[in-house]
Computed example of a mutant assay.
Amino acid sequence: RINRQLMELSKRLGRWTQPILSGGSIPATKYDTEQQQLYLPGHDYSITDAELVGIDKNRQTLIESLCLEDCSLRIIAVWGMGGLGKSTLVNNVYKNEATVSNFNYRAWLSISQSCRVLDIWRNMLKELCGKESREFDAENMSSTELKVELTKILDQKRYLIILDDVWLATDFLKIREVLVDNGLGSRVIITTRIEEVASIAENGCKISLEPLDNHDAWLLFCRKAFPKIEDHICPPELEQCGMDIIDKCDGLPLALVAIGSLLSFKSKNKKDWRLFYNQLISEVHNNENLNRVEKILNLSYKHLPNYLKNCFLYLCYVPRRLHYPEKEIN
């Protein structure tokens, strides 16, 4: 009888628990599914160029990095926490800057945590060759064949390649095997959350993104929350509640855009907005228009080593006033 009970407990254990991965390793399969359901990691397609705020300085730095007179291959890193708009910034330059047209070959590749080098190389070949890719059966090419063909192509012309959402330096080093330094001023831009990955770039070619200040955060929020109002001006009766929501977003463009867009569909009265603010945490968890914010930020949590995850969870139980005692005083 005891043996039967132990066997049943063992089966339950297998159904309800999974082994903890050591060293902060991350299961990739679920990430792949979530990534396909969301969009390119970190890139918010609901932001138009006219709505971008607070990126002018970083945008200019990125353009200057592309236009350096140095003809050697340069690696440029745009890094910062999830939701800061790394991909949005790079995409703006990639789409709109005339300087980008000076590159003979261009490719945008989404890497992610579940990086598969062969798939990256196949996609790179398709992106670089465009219609000419029909000449290549990339899906059936071996690693050696892909490497030879890509090296041959990239050795001939000036190229710009975007590697979006790189999580491991070792992944980049594998991909880099085909990135030829052809002396023509080619550039590779990496977007990443990880400082170690960003350190691959030279000091003059690293762009660290920070949260928006209160002024820019308010501008972005109002542009999304009041798209039909002239100059996107917030009604006076909603200003205080709007500022409280801004404070919760802590300057994170991803959250500001998602919450502002959702509020644009709600009635413009103080009672409804205050109710939304009071239920904001629940909304982020349960509203399908907002829970993508949680999913993207959770990727950073999942990447933490186990001892930091425990520390992070412990801090969640500490009252907010102990984190920011000066706020309680003020």
Rank of each mutant, 00 (worst) to 15 (best):
Leu40Asp: 14
Leu62Phe: 11
Cys71Ala: 13
Leu40Asn: 13
Thr61Gln: 09
Cys71Thr: 05
Thr48Gly: 11
Val53Pro: 03
Glu69Ile: 05
His43Gln: 13
Ile75Thr: 05
Ser65Ala: 14
Tyr45Ser: 12
His43Ser: 05
Asp56Pro: 01
Lys57Ala: 07
Ser72Ile: 10
Ser65Lys: 06
Cys67Leu: 13
Tyr45Lys: 10
Leu40Met: 14
Leu40Pro: 15
Asp49Glu: 14
Arg74Ile: 08
Leu73Tyr: 06
Gln60Trp: 11
Ser65Pro: 07
Leu68Met: 05
Glu69Cys: 09
Cys71Glu: 14
Gln60Leu: 08
Gly54Cys: 12
Leu73Trp: 09
Gly42Leu: 06
Lys57Gly: 02
Arg59His: 13
Gln60Tyr: 11
Asp44Gln: 03
Leu66Thr: 04
Leu66Asn: 00
Glu51Lys: 04
Leu62Asp: 08
Asp49Gly: 12
Leu66Gln: 05
Leu52Gly: 02
Glu51Asp: 10
Thr61Leu: 09
Arg74Trp: 02
Asp56Val: 00
Asn58Leu: 07
Gly42Gln: 00
Ser65Ile: 04
Ser65Thr: 01
Tyr45Leu: 10
Pro41Gly: 02
Leu40Gln: 14
Gln60Cys: 03
Val53Ser: 07
Glu69Ser: 09
Tyr39Leu: 08
Ile63Val: 04
Ile55Thr: 06
Thr48Gln: 11
Arg74His: 00
Asn58Met: 12
Ala50Ser: 09
Ile47His: 09
Ile76Leu: 09
Ile63Thr: 04
Leu40Ser: 13
Tyr45Glu: 14
Ile47Ala: 05
Asp56Cys: 00
Leu40Val: 14
Ala50Arg: 11
Arg74Phe: 05
Ile55Gly: 02
Asp44Gly: 01
Cys67Phe: 13
Leu73Ser: 02
Lys57Tyr: 15
Asn58Tyr: 11
Ile76Tyr: 03
Glu69Trp: 15
Ile55Trp: 04
Leu52Gln: 10
Cys67Ala: 15
Thr61Phe: 08
Arg74Leu: 10
Asp49Phe: 14
Gln60Gly: 09
Tyr45Met: 08
Gly54Arg: 00
Cys71Asp: 13
Ile63His: 04
Tyr39Gln: 03
Glu64Arg: 04
His43Ile: 10
Leu73Gly: 00
Gly54Met: 07
Leu68Arg: 00
Glu51Val: 01
Ile47Asp: 02
Leu66Ile: 07
Leu66Pro: 11
Arg59Leu: 15
Thr61Asn: 06
Leu62Arg: 00
Ile63Phe: 15
Asp70Lys: 02
Gly42His: 00
Ser72Glu: 15
Leu40Lys: 12
Leu52Ile: 10
Cys67Tyr: 10
Thr61Tyr: 02
Ile63Pro: 02
Arg59Phe: 15
Thr48Tyr: 15
Leu40Tyr: 15
Ser65Cys: 15
Leu73Asn: 00
Leu73Val: 03
Lys57Phe: 14
Ile76Glu: 04
Ser65Tyr: 03
Asp49Leu: 13
Cys71Ile: 09
Ile75Leu: 14
Ala50Met: 06
Ile55Val: 13
Tyr39Asn: 04
Glu51Ala: 06
Leu62Lys: 05
Ser72Arg: 15
Cys67Arg: 09
Ser65Asn: 13
Gly42Arg: 01
Leu62Gly: 07
Leu66Cys: 06
Arg59Tyr: 12
Glu69Met: 08
Ile75Asn: 01
Gly54Asp: 12
Gly42Asn: 05
Ser46Ile: 05
His43Trp: 15
Leu52Ala: 06
Ser46Gln: 10
Ile63Gly: 00
Asp44His: 01
Leu40Ile: 15
Glu64Gly: 03
Ala50Lys: 08
